[in-house]
């Protein structure tokens, strides 16, 4: 039964990957990320073997802090940044949404195929963990590459971190959760910086397309022409 509940949580995470890559409205994306963050944060409690003992206080604190930061705090910060820059949707992604769904399908297939050959200890807990972690990492990287807006790229980075977190939980290394809290701090700082950057890019250029950032610098491209 416990294995089934882990599998269902992991399947929910996979589904959020697909929905995130396929949706264009930013607020919707942020909500989906929040759901994913809560699922990833609570995952250690599901992995815990309840039949022997109840989880330690350390585990309760780390997973609730994890879920709180990923599921509540970061989405609030991101939606604030979104409201500051007054953009609602990603209009011109570098890769179209239907193509994105196909690419995510390829990523998921590949990660399921290759994780067969990995003798990760994660398979002891649930054989589903490693492929889900790999495909979430892949989907996050894809979001960073294929979207222009700075906020969507920050979302991609969050997904990437979620993937690492799933992988760490699956392996279950001792004090792994503390390391993850460290990573989480990095992500928090990243989102702060992103929020400030988004605001500044927006004020400077009246859009937040980060692919035009290469026009910055001393060398002026427009004078060349």
């Amino acid at each position: 039964m416990i294995t089934n509940s882990i599998e269902i949580i992991l399947a929910i995470i996979l589904l959020t990957d697909i929905v995130l890559v396929a949706s264009s409205r930013l607020f919707h994306c942020i909500k989906i990320t929040a759901i994913q963050g809560i699922a990833v944060g609570l995952l250690p409690l599901f992995i815990w073997d309840w039949s022997n003992s109840t989880p330690t206080l350390q585990l309760w604190i780390t997973s609730i802090v994890n879920a709180g930061i990923k599921g509540v705090l970061l989405p609030i910060l991101l939606s604030k940044a979104m409201r500051h820059s007054s953009i609602k949707r990603e209009l011109e992604p570098l890769v179209s949404y239907s193509a994105s769904v196909f690419i995510i399908l390829i990523i998921i297939t590949a990660s399921f195929y290759f994780s067969q050959f990995m003798n990760a200890p994660a398979t002891d807990i649930c054989r589903f963990t490693t492929p889900t972690a790999l495909s979430t990492i892949g989907a996050g990287l894809f979001m960073i590459i294929a979207r222009k807006k700075a906020i969507t790229q920050a979302l991609g980075f969050l997904m990437f971190e979620n993937g690492i977190s799933i992988f760490g939980n699956g392996i279950g290394i001792e004090y792994g959760f503390i390391i993850e809290l460290g990573i989480l701090l990095d992500v928090l700082v990243l989102v702060f910086i992103m929020g400030i950057t988004v605001f500044n890019i927006n004020r400077e250029f009246s859009h937040i397309d980060s692919d035009r950032l290469n026009q910055l610098g001393d060398y002026d491209h427009s004078k060349q022409k």
């Binding site: 697909i18 929905v19 396929a22 239907s98 769904v101 995510i104 998921i108 297939t109 067969q116 589903f128």
Partner: peptide, 22 residues
């Protein structure tokens, strides 16, 4: 709409994938 249906197709394919790999 086609994109939504494509997502449903992806979900069904993932189910087959899980079944055949595991």
């Amino acid at each position: 709409v086609p994109q939504l249906l494509l997502s449903a197709f992806t979900i069904a394919l993932i189910a087959i994938l899980l079944l055949s790999i595991f």
